[in-house]
Design a protein around this nucleic acid. Sequence first.
DNA 1: ACCTTGACAGAAT
DNA 2: AATTCTGCCAAGG
Length: 115
Amino acid sequence: MGNREKSEDYFEWVYAVVAKIPFGRVTTYGAISQYLGLRSGARMVGWALNSSRIDKEYAGLPCHRVVNRLGQLSGRYHFTGNVMEERLRQEGVVFINDFTVDLEKHFWDPARELP
DNA sequence: ACCTTGACAGAAT
DNA sequence: AATTCTGCCAAGG
């Protein structure tokens, strides 16, 4: 795990996109997989982030800005405590409730915003 | 080598 | 409208 050389390179592609999510904006697993044209689907995007969590080289990745299609912080349990929510609130992201962000307001679509 | 389990999402029931 | 099923594929047991 955390072995970037082997496995499919799309893990790298995922990291690249996540790294470009602007401050105060969020995107979804599905949007990323769609933008990258991954047949593997949104599930593998989450899997890639799971690897990045362990891989120190990607410790700075703003993976807290990735939520599921309903705006729910499905990855919150992979952060310590409620770090994911705290970070987003710090960026001024509006919450519907403790684990759901206002996607309408903050959604960032890589397919539309990226060249 | 087989089965289960996911940081998901969309279709089908 | 709500729940279940299905595609997807990498790890871990």
